[in-house]
Each structure stands twice: as structure tokens, then as C-alpha cells.
Design a protein around this nucleic acid. Structure first.
Lengths: 204, 204, 204, 204
DNA sequence: TATGAATGAGGATTCATTCAT
DNA sequence: AATGAATGAATCCTCATTCAT
């Protein structure tokens, strides 16, 4: 069987195992078994547990970024872009729960080398969201009132809210990606104050 | 030395070690060393690694809940209560980074028994926030429009945002608990839409 | 059983195993078995295979140096001292073949850290022999004719001859330490030329 | 590429690797890499690690023997032959440090099959030297006084001294083969006693 | 109340070796 | 003549846990 195919099998098995068990608790034996190969082959192709985990983080990062970017149409107004991005995000994480677990939970929990690896992803996403917020502010002709640091904080909060909702939606099966995106979009765009007063955000 | 004191030393050491290394990477040796006792004593008092970790989760949960509850004055309007609760939350997590790491990162990452333990906490907090949102809705005389499930989703998002900001505030040293609470309160209460238009939420 | 005793049992087993199998081929399992303990205890007391091997080298070095020094009486003329030292050397190596194998064969064959460790021993012995040669030269009132580098070379050759003979004597069981010392002393002191002519060196 | 050439490339790589790393620490992977071929080819041509090592020992033995024999002119007096042989020996070992390491250090350190292989070489050399000593004794008309076993012991000592000096000369770069041969010849032929008295052996 | 001594079980990693092509 | 793909079997090392005192 050609190397590329085997390698993908192994990475799939690794993402699943790391996502469910965690970095330390996952054993190379289990990963090899799940991939249907012997342990030495895993080492031959992927060098070490650490590199394997790093490779998983990278692959899942790129997949997530790609999914979000594919979901966004650059020409639209900022709120529409945000809405589309959130939808793509929730869809992708719902479809790849183990990959999402690797990124969101495991990678950040097991020491610097890995945390650094996901930080890149997170910063990329936060930067994307920060950009959207800036664009929205400019569209509203009030941009000057939002300092950069405020926007970064808002982006952090928004991304955190999305991450948390993604986990919640995954665990309590009943919530679809679209519902999650709707809830969050309302919350983020209108705020609790407006929601209390019956106002809603709608995709035009 | 009396048992209660010894036990607290051990739990302190355990929280620190678990918080920094993670459940699997933390070794009973290191915990015993850090506590200044021999390993058999740790086992005598706390039975097993699993029980020790569970005990840590419980203790830190209770401490966090207590801190948040102590920060809230029940008589105030819902937004003021939320504001006070957020402030207490950010203050406590900033002062107990290891405990917060145990709850937020480690406990949810290392398998069912622990995740279940910390879910109790999260649900308690979510319920508290859900209650506040409900109260705010009633104050606005518009409660009927928000279904229970929506409120739960909103609470999830808000708590997630808070957790994310807590991590951010802890890592980028420059943000104080009060600032974090202000950013989040604005975001959550006013929404991005209003913020773009220059509106702000203020503690009256 | 007290730690010191166990530690010596382990070192004994290690010297025997390393001496017979070599550093790489010796397994910690075999050493632990031979010592009658479990592997973890070996690691608890002696840290790692590398440190264990180093400890063996050091212990056997010190034992050999001590044996040679104990065999020499400082007041005697140089040839008598040499004779006594050689006798002690051959006796000790014959009685501790595994220790001698560790020093002479294994340590020098398995990489820098260990080779450096035995070099210390060898240099100490070579220095001792060089000193004796120097003393003999002074006794003969001709010292000025032997450059330091020549003496070092002679000492190297002498020590090498002794080492070689020690191995030979160990392998072909029939040669006693005293015989080996006699053969070497004759060879070294009289030279082949004189031996051919029937002259012999005798301990007076 | 013809088999004979490939085979030599592999043996060269093997000698270098075995000489530097030792039998156990050398990996077939490294040898194959260094030879610029794939591992299965090594196995096809040389069967197994053990046989490869044995082949190395044999090849280097024969090369050393050949070099020494080529350096000696049979018609000369014994001391001149010895001198020439020592010179050839030191020259060859200096030019083939890895081969010499295989013979002198590695082969004797890694268990019976290999030690036996190199013993053949050593015995051949010892026999050669023993023969020279016997010849010298006959030339001096005093042969009857040296028993066979004494001569064997002397030869052992002489060969050991040569081996030791060869190592020393290789490590401390400053000593040439000729110097080493001179030092040893003086030591062996004249003895320390005569050297102390200012007498020297000279190639006439 | 407290510990020095000890281990069973498991995990990461490497290596000599083979097969199908 | 030559190799990409693959593995069984060790080997070093760590860790949670217990026992006798």
C-alpha cells in the first residue's frame, strides 16, 4: 500500500485517539492498532509521538481554517460574513468532533510545544474576527471609537463563545450548526439588552 | 501535624501540579515531594490519584462558586448582578490560575469521571446565568419571547466567552479582572451592533 | 534490606553482566534478575543504564588503584616497586576478571563518556609508572637522557604489555599472577636483547 | 554495478560504522545508508549482521597480516625483522584506524564468535613474533634457556605493548609510526634497565 | 502519625530481518 | 541487480500502588 495512503490512515487514527483519550493517555499501540498497522511503521512514517501529535494539530488546524474561509464570501457586509463564518465553523466542528477536541482541548492542555502550535491557529482566527469587527465599525462610521485592544478583547470573547458553543452543541446532540450559529450571532450582534427587548438579528 | 493541615498541603500541591502538568503527566511522586510528605501518606489520606484529582476538582469548584456568589448582591437588577458576578469570576480565576487550569483545562480533558465532576460546576454556573437572563427578561416584560433552550444557549455562550477571556487575561498580563469584566459586559449586554454605533453599557 | 546492601548487590550484578556481555548487550532486566531485585529498584537507586555503567567503572577503577597502591612499598628502589606493583596488578585483575573486563574492554569501547572515565584511571597508572621510570633513571644517574615524552611512551608500552598479559593470563588459566609479573618484569627491565644472552632480572 | 564493487562499498561502510560505534550500536540502517544502498541489498550480499561483522574482521585481519608480512624481509637478523615488522604494523594501524578499532576493540568485546575470529589473527602474529624471538635466541646461541611458554608470554607482552602504543599514537596525533616503532623497539630489545644506563638499540 | 523499601504493569522507541515486486 | 513496504521482538524507563515497620 502506498505511503501517502498509509500515512493518512495513521493520522486519522491518531486524531481519533488523541481527541478521545488525550495526548498522554493515548498509546502508540492503540493508534497503530486502530490504523491497522504495526507500531514500527508509525514510527517510520511519523517519527515520534510528539511529532505525530504536532502533525495532527497542523492538519486539523488547516482543515478548520480552510472550512471557515470556504464558508465566507469576502464581498458581503461584516455581519453577514461573521454569520457565514460562524456557520461554517459550527458545521466543521460538528463534523469533526475528534479533530476539534484535539485542537480545542488536547493541544492546549499538554505543554508548550503543542499549545504554541494551536496558538497560531487561534490567532489567525482572532485576527480574522478582529478584522471583521473593524470592518463593521467602519461601515457604521464609528470606527474611531473602538480601540485595537478593545477589538482584540471582543474577538477573544466571541471566539471563546463560539468554542464553548461548539463543545455544547457537540455534547448535547440536539443543537444543529445553524441553530448554534444563530444563537451566537444574535448574542454577539444584538447583545442581551436588545434581545431582552425582543429585538433580533436576521440574515437579510 | 494534624490531619486537616496535612491534607490541605497535599491538595495545594496537587492542584498546582495537576494544573501545570495535567492529570496524566503529574506524578504522585512530584505531588508528594511538593507537599513535603512521603508518598504513602498521600495514599493514606487521599486513597488514589483518581480520588485526589476528583477532590481537587471539587475543592476548586466550590471555591469558585463561593467566590462568584460572594460577589453578587441578590437584590440588584440583573445586569448589575451579572456585572458583579463577572468581576468576581475574573478576580478569582486570576488569583487561582492553577485551580482554574484544573477546572477549565485538565478536568474536561481527561475522561468521563472528571468531566462529569466539572460539568456539575458548569451547570451550576450556567443555571445561575440562565436565571439572571430570565430575570432580566422578566424585568423587560418580554420574557415570553425567550425559550428556555435559547437562554441555555446564551448562557453557554456567555460562560464560554468568560472562560476564554479569563485565559486571555491570565496570559497577556496587561488586562485586569475589571477590564475583562467591562469588555465582556459590554459585549454581552450591548452586542457588537450597538457597540459599533458607539453605545456602551455602564454600571449605573 | 538496607539500601547500601542492595546497592552493592546491584553493582556486583552489573559489573558481572557488563563485563561479560558488554554495555549494549547487557540488559537492565538481566542485571536486575541477577541482583535478585526488580528493575524499578535498580532505576530508583542508580538512575539509568548510563549512570550504572559509570558507577561500575568508577568503583572498579578505585578498587584497582587501591590494590596496586596497597601492593607497593614507597621506600624501595624503583625496580622493586615496579615488581610489586605488577604483582598486585596481576593478582587483582585475576581475582576480578569481570571488573577488569569492564575497565579494559567495555568502557573503552562504548563511546566518549565512558572512555573518558577510564582514561582518568589509565592516566593515573601511566603517571605512576612514568614516575617510577623517572626514579629509576635518577637512581642510575642518567635521568637527563630520557625526555618526558619518551618516558610517557615507555609507560604506555609497559602498561599495554601488562594489560595484554593480564588478559592472556586470565584466558589461559595456567599462568599465575606471579609468573605473569615475572615474565613482564624480565621483559621490561632486561629487554629481549639481554634475555637472549641469558641475563635475568631477579627480585633481590 | 557489479557485485564485487558493491560488496566492497558495503564492507567499507561496515568497517567504518562498526569501528566507530561498536557492534551493537551500529545499525544496519546506518551501514546501508553510508554504503549508498538499500538494506535488502546488504542482506542479499552479506546475509546477516553477524556475518557482515565476521567478514569485516576477516578482511581487516588479512589486510593487517599482509601489511606486516610485506614490511618484513625474511633474510635479515631477528632484531631487524622485528623492527621492520613493528614499523609496518604501526603504519598500517595508523592508516586504517577504523579497521584497527574493529580488530582491537570491537571484535574482542562482543562475545565468543567474534573474539574467536580475532584470536586467529592474534595467534598468527604472536606465532610470528615468537618465531622471531626464537630465531634471535638461536642467533645468540642461548636459545635453550628460553622455554616455549616463556617465549609465548614475551610475545604476548610485546604484542600488547604494540597494540597499546598503536592506540596511543593514534589518539595523540603527534607520534609517528616510526617514532612509535623506535620507542617500542628500544623498550623491547634493550629493556628499561639498559635504557636507564644510556644504552640504545639502533637499526644498524 | 509517618516512611523506607519494593514492584507489576505498561509505554515509547529501535532494530534486525523479510517479502513482493 | 535492486528496493519500498512492513513487522516481531526486545530494550530502556516510569508510575501508581503496597507492605512492613
Amino acid at each position: 500500500m502506498p505511503r501517502a495512503v498509509r500515512e493518512r490512515q495513521m493520522m486519522d487514527a491518531a486524531v481519533q485517539t488523541f481527541g478521545q483519550r488525550g495526548y498522554r493517555a493515548a498509546s502508540m499501540d492503540e493508534i497503530a492498532d486502530l490504523a491497522g498497522v504495526s507500531k514500527p511503521l508509525v514510527y517510520l512514517y511519523l517519527s515520534s509521538k510528539e511529532e505525530l501529535f504536532t502533525a495532527c494539530i497542523r492538519r486539523e488546524s488547516e482543515a478548520l481554517i480552510a472550512a471557515v474561509q470556504a464558508g465566507v464570501e469576502p464581498g458581503l457586509p461584516a455581519d453577514r460574513q461573521l454569520w457565514a463564518g460562524l456557520g461554517a465553523f459550527f458545521t466543521h466542528t460538528a463534523e469533526n468532533p475528534d479533530g476539534w477536541a484535539v485542537l480545542h482541548r488536547q493541544a492546549r492542555t499538554h505543554g508548550e510545544p503543542f499549545a504554541a502550535e494551536v496558538s497560531v491557529l487561534r490567532e489567525e482566527i482572532v485576527a480574522f474576527v478582529t478584522g471583521l469587527i473593524g470592518a463593521a465599525a467602519r461601515e457604521a462610521h464609528q470606527g474611531s471609537e473602538l480601540a485595537d485592544r478593545d477589538m482584540a478583547g471582543l474577538a477573544q470573547a466571541l471566539v471563546g463563545a463560539a468554542e464553548s458553543l461548539a463543545g455544547w452543541a457537540n455534547e448535547t446532540g440536539g443543537v444543529s450548526a445553524k441553530e448554534a450559529a444563530g444563537t451566537l450571532m444574535n448574542f454577539a450582534w444584538m447583545g442581551l439588552g436588545d434581545l431582552m427587548n425582543g429585538e433580533r438579528w436576521n440574515p437579510r
